[in-house]
Design a protein around this nucleic acid. Sequence first.
DNA 1: TTCTATAGGCACCAAAAGGAGAGTGTTCGG
DNA 2: CCGAACACTCTCCTTTTGGTGCCTATAGAA
Lengths: 139, 139
Amino acid sequence: MGAIRDAVAAMQEQGRLEHPQVSPEVDALVRDVIAQVADKWTMLILEALEEHGTLRFTQIGRIVGGISQKMLTKTVRQMECDGLITRKVHPVIPPHVDYTQTELGRELTAAFCGVWVWAETYYAQVEAARAAFRAREGR
Amino acid sequence: MGAIRDAVAAMQEQGRLEHPQVSPEVDALVRDVIAQVADKWTMLILEALEEHGTLRFTQIGRIVGGISQKMLTKTVRQMECDGLITRKVHPVIPPHVDYTQTELGRELTAAFCGVWVWAETYYAQVEAARAAFRAREGR
DNA sequence: TTCTATAGGCACCAAAAGGAGAGTGTTCGG
DNA sequence: CCGAACACTCTCCTTTTGGTGCCTATAGAA
C-alpha cells in the first residue's frame, strides 16, 4: 500500500493526475507566465497604456500612482522582455522614452478584463465577507 | 509653478486624475482585491476546486502541487475570509475538513478563465519574446 | 504496542520584494 | 550660474514571502 501511495505521489508531482491532457512542461510554462503577469503592477501598467495609449516613463508612474521608480523600471523591463510592451528610446537630451502595448499586451489586457469587471462587481461582497469573517472568528 | 505641481501630485495620490468616474475608495478596494487574487496560489486552488468539486486539505495540496502546508493553510484562510470558499469542519478523529467554492469563487474562476486561455494560447510567443530579448540585450 | 493518517500551529531561518533617497549627464530657461 | 527636467542606476534598509522541521490529538491498522 505504501508503494501505491508513493507511485501516486510521484505521478502527482509530475502533474499527470490533474491535467491528463496537457504536458507537464506546458503546465509549468503556463504557471510561470501567469505568475509573471500576476504581480502587483503589470496589469495596472497595461491598463494605463490601454487607456492613454503610448506613454513616457514618468507618465506611467503618475497614472499608476504609488509605485516607486525602482519597481517601475523593473516591471517595464520585465514586460518588455515578455513582449507585452515595446520601449522606444529617443536619443535626445533630456531623455525621452516611449512605452507602447504590443498586440500580445493588448490581448492580455482584454483577457484580464473579466477580472476587472469581477472586482468592480463583487468588491462589496468581498468586503461584506471579510467583515462577517472578522465578526465570526477573529478579533 | 511648484505649487501647481504639488497640487497635481496631491490629486494624483488620491487617484482623481486617472479614473475620474470611480471614487478613490472603490479604486483602492478593487486594487486590493486584484492583489489578493494575483498571488501565486489562489487561482490554482480555485481551479482545483472547479475541476474536482469539494476537496479536503491534503487533496488540494496534492492537486496543486509544490505548495507547503504553511502556504496552503494561509491561502485557504485568506480565501475563506474573502468569501471565495467555504470551510466545513467535521469534528471527527482523524480530522476531516472540506473546502468548497462559493458562488463568488465560481464567478471569479469564470472571470479568470480568459487569462488561462491567454496563457495557453500565447506562452510560446512569450517564450520567443524572452529569447529575442536575451539575444538582443542581455548576456 | 507502535505506526500512520489528518489538519493544522509554531518557531526559526533564508530569500525576495519593495521603499527611500542620493547620484548622473546634459540641455534649456531664467 | 543656478536649477529643473528626464529616465534612469545604485546603495541601504525594512517588510513580506515562503520553506523546513517539530509539535498536537486520537482512532484504527499492523
